[in-house]
Design a protein around this nucleic acid. Structure first.
Length: 482
DNA sequence: CCTGGAGTTGTCCTA
DNA sequence: TTAGGACAACTCCAG
């Protein structure tokens, strides 16, 4: 009788380039499982948009596994322990996670399993460089991206492993007592997901095709083009990467091998360094576990954030009266995604114009984004706020009018999500409040009725932010106490 | 231990 | 019209 080996799927919902699966196949019969545990998942419940994605991603994986993905709900250690006894499991394999609580939980489980003389091994499935492998010569972690990436990763560390071969046919064990994906109740009860449905094709196969298509049609103009939200020049691979429908290794080598060099190396390098930023975020969270909750730079603990519910709601719903901001927030709400350039604009607006705590932004994104990722989300919000590692300086405050004019000059992106402004000429698109009455009239816009007046005075709020940031103590009390 | 160069994505003012 | 400097100074990191 062949022995059974569990592959515990987590954020690696794919068959290709999956080291844990590959290992199980080489040992014997494969029992693929997914355990849904709301309590410990990613340190907090996953957001609504992520649940929606997870549902479809699990369905896709299940299909690749001949409808034999075994689903369980509850505490992982308890479930694994029951499965070991019930099905005479000879070994358990998984690909590693890097969030601090997941690391702790996984090592506890690994120890527990090995104590019963069951084989248990973990692998690297989701990072090009594992956080514990990249350190400065004094064995402490990097805090500046360029040094981390250029020196730590590219120069000093080993090159990322090559993607593994696609597994051949293998024997799968299905537990008839496992649950159905539907029983996880990940889909919304009211159907807010119609636009999302139209926007995304979920699963390993589509992720791979999207990557191929991106490299072919967009990578050659990535460095400049990625800043224009109306152009399809970003990869949009982030949700696929988060759930592990594709590995960064696959992307890294595919892009390098298939990039046509007519525009020089700069487009390729620019794209690869975005993968580098994903790595850097995971790295920071690994070494600084409080990143999601605490300011990376403690002097920001003295910042007096405004708690204004009305302003926060206007921002969340895309009703700020600043068209590029509203377009971004509505894109997020409708599609579960927002273009990177616009993420910076809305982030800067929340933190530096509304003076609202970056954690509020982090929370909202967490719930709305299909690519919500603990590391990337908290690292990026801290970056925008200026409180993070290697962050934007406090005086870098995006002007939503200029940003709109510069990066969406025709208004194609903005008008798609703010259709009430579709007849407004480009000259006033990003400042309808400055448009003459007759212009507004012929565009069919009554300000304050069809589209809101700005919820804040840009210049005044900018100056207030500059003063507030300037007044932060140079060295925090916490530092002095240490 | 000391030194010096450098640090994702901007805006505004001035000459 | 456009280009360059100020915005602040600090910390990080390599040599």
């Amino acid at each position: 009788m062949t022995k059974k080996f569990i592959v515990w799927f987590r954020n690696d919902l794919r068959i290709q380039d999956n080291p844990a699966l590959q290992t199980a196949i080489s040992h014997g019969e494969v029992m693929p499982i997914y355990i849904y545990d709301e309590k410990i998942h990613h340190h907090k419940n996953i957001g609504g948009a992520s649940k929606w994605w997870l549902h479809h991603s699990l369905n896709s994986l299940n299909k690749s596994l001949k409808n034999s993905l075994n689903i369980y709900v509850g505490d992982a250690q308890k479930i694994l322990s029951e499965l070991i006894n019930k099905h005479q499991i000879a070994g358990i394999f998984w690909n590693r996670r890097y969030e601090p609580l997941s690391v702790a939980n996984d090592s506890k489980i690994k120890k527990f399993i090995r104590e019963q003389n069951i084989m248990c091994d973990s692998f690297n499935g989701s990072l090009l460089w594992e956080p514990h492998d990249v350190l400065k010569s004094d064995n402490t972690p990097y805090k500046v991206f360029t040094h981390y990436y250029r020196k730590g990763c590219l120069l000093t560390a080993k090159a990322p492993r090559l993607p593994s071969k696609t597994p051949e046919n293998f024997v799968i064990f299905h537990d008839k007592n496992s649950k159905k994906i539907e029983e996880l109740k990940l889909l919304p009860t009211i159907s807010w997901d119609r636009t999302m449905q139209k926007t995304w094709q979920i699963g390993e196969k589509f992720a791979y095709e999207k990557m191929q298509n991106f490299v072919k049609t967009a990578l050659g103009d990535y460095k400049i083009g990625r800043d224009f939200p109306a152009q399809k020049k970003v990869s949009q691979l982030s949700p696929h990467l988060h759930f592990g429908e594709i590995s960064p290794h696959q992307i890294w080598y595919y892009a390098k091998q298939n990039y046509l060099e007519k525009a020089g190396e700069k487009n390729l390098d620019s794209f690869l360094s975005e993968l580098g930023w994903r790595e850097f975020s995971a790295y920071l969270l690994f070494h600084f576990p409080n990143l999601p909750s605490d300011n990376f730079q403690p002097r920001y603990n003295h910042f007096k954030w405004q708690s204004n519910h009305k302003l926060l709601t206007a921002w969340q719903k895309g009703q700020t009266g600043l068209p590029i901001v509203d377009a971004g927030m509505r894109e997020l709400w409708q599609t579960g995604y927002m273009h990177n350039r616009v993420r910076m604009i809305v982030g800067s607006f929340l933190v530096k114009n509304l003076l609202i705590d970056w954690r509020e932004g982090e929370k909202w994104f967490w719930d709305c984004l299909v690519d919500a990722d603990l590391a990337s989300n908290s690292a990026s919000w801290q970056w925008v706020a200026g409180s993070g590692a290697d962050a934007a300086p406090y005086f870098r405050i995006f002007n939503p009018i200029l940003q709109g004019e510069k990066f969406d000059p025709e208004g194609e992106y903005t008008k798609k999500f703010v259709p009430e402004l579709k007849n407004l000429p480009a000259k006033y698109l990003y400042k309808p409040f400055e448009a003459p009455a007759e212009v507004l009239k012929s565009a069919n816009i009554r300000l304050g009725v069809d589209y809101p007046l700005p919820i804040i005075d840009l210049e005044k709020s900018r100056n207030l932010a500059l003063e507030t940031f300037k007044s932060l103590p140079k060295i925090s009390d916490e530092d002095l106490l240490q």
